[in-house]
């Protein structure tokens, strides 16, 4: 209960973070319950009704096949959010493990992990993701792997630097005196203390991962066309921008922008709450 009071106080102090949190919950609800929320079938085409501007019956208008854009935008939340969550979770788990081991044990392991991370960082990350998807095969699960790989270096670095600082702290000495093994100290003493910066990193990373996933599908990698997904919808709408049908590309693009904004605000807010010194 005391924890809850504290959170309530902190959120009321940061109204922007509160708004972002509410928006985030809304996005998650959209993603989970999309099939029951949409007014039309996002895949049903109705060519008699194609390329209609926004109206009362179709809030966001219809696309070149007469599909309802509002329904497609809502359904699209699923794909992009799913890819981003998968990629961030995978990157966080593997990155934390590698970073923790490298920071704690040092030596050859540290050098090997460090060089591995350097190799990933030696490429512009979006290009690397493109190359990985091209090499592994053009499908959704490989987009998740590619995003996870390009996200991993950040987790390795955050966790490693935190562990390096913490491993000489008094409570670690105390735990060792009590007879805890290295493994036990790492998992039960050190990792819980790293979780706060890790959560901040994850929420800042989510928005970036969504941008990456949408960008990959925008250039035609990963998800295939009839699937409602924001990047593809913007890519399809791009052909109609020049002839003035703005609603095809605007709404999915706007949805993507707002969701990424929400994640970034949430991440900034969390960082300010957890570690006010790092504010820029």
């Amino acid at each position: 209960m005391k924890q809850f009071e504290e959170w309530r106080y902190l959120l009321l102090q940061n109204p922007l973070t509160l708004i972002a949190l509410i928006a985030f919950i809304g996005v998650v609800i959209c993603a989970l319950f999309a099939p029951w929320l949409v007014p039309y079938d996002p895949l049903a085409s109705d060519t008699a009704n194609a390329l209609q501007p926004p109206s009362w019956s179709n809030w966001f208008g219809t696309d070149q096949l007469g599909r309802d854009i509002f329904s497609r935008v809502i359904m699209g939340t699923r794909m992009d959010l799913g890819i981003a969550v998968g990629a961030v979770a995978l990157a966080a788990v593997i990155g934390t493990f590698l970073g923790a081991c490298a920071g704690f044990y040092g030596g050859h392991l540290d050098r090997a992990v460090g060089r591995g991370v350097d190799i990933i960082m030696a490429f512009p990350l979006f290009v690397l993701a493109m190359a990985i998807v091209a090499g592994l095969g053009n499908n959704v699960i490989n987009v998740v792997y590619a995003s996870a790989i390009i996200n991993m270096p950040f987790y390795v670095r955050v966790v490693r630097s935190e562990i390096l600082v913490l491993k000489n702290a008094g409570f670690v000495e105390a735990a060792r005196l009590c007879g805890n093994s290295n493994k036990r100290i790492l998992w039960f003493q050190l990792l819980p203390n790293v979780s706060a910066p890790l959560v901040v990193q994850m929420s800042l990373n989510m928005g970036w991962s969504m941008l990456n996933a949408a960008s990959l599908s925008f250039v035609g990698l990963g998800i295939r066309p009839p699937t409602p997904e924001w990047g593809i919808m913007v890519a399809e709408g791009a052909h109609y921008i020049i002839s003035g049908q703005w609603w095809l590309a605007l709404f999915p693009g706007l949805a993507l922008t707002l969701v990424v904004l929400c994640f970034n605000l949430l991440g900034d807010g969390l960082r300010d709450i957890i570690d006010p010194r790092r504010r820029t």
């Binding site: 928005g207 941008l211 925008f218 913007v234 791009a238 921008i241 922008t257 990424v260």
Partner: peptide, 21 residues
């Protein structure tokens, strides 16, 4: 804040729509 949230391909299309169309 908005610069890091705007998908580049989307900004490009918005600019085309406004300044070309």
């Amino acid at each position: 804040t908005s610069g890091v949230c705007l998908p580049t391909f989307f900004t490009g299309l918005v600019l085309i729509y406004i300044f070309y169309y």
